[in-house]
Amino acid sequence: MPVREIAGVQVDFDAEGFMTNPDQWNEEIAKVLAAEEGISQLTEGHWQVIHFIREDYKEKGQAPTIRRMNKVGNIATKDLYEWFPKGPAKKAARIAGLGKPQGCV
């Protein structure tokens, strides 16, 4: 398991670059991971998504689907694709310090 030091924290990752311990996450880490995904600036919209999926993860034990982000998190699918281009569910989960989403939708 690769360990990287980001913003002064030792962070555990899996082989695909997803964090394995969501408790190690903080907003500074999110900014670094976002930059790695090609998102140079996290806007209010990005944070809304990140905070929602972290909350939902705490409750459900898995990262939410895009439908759930829409229905429960009130996040428009169009916005999601705009804010996290080329793979919104995966990118948002990675930036939020969660594992890779396992669902098909």
Binding site: I66, R67, R68, N70, A76, T77, K78, G103, C104, V105
Partner: peptide, 18 residues
Amino acid sequence: KIDIPPVDEFLEMIKDAG
């Protein structure tokens, strides 16, 4: 149960996805 929407909603989601 596995969060797959009804067909009309699914079409909307797919369209919104680009």
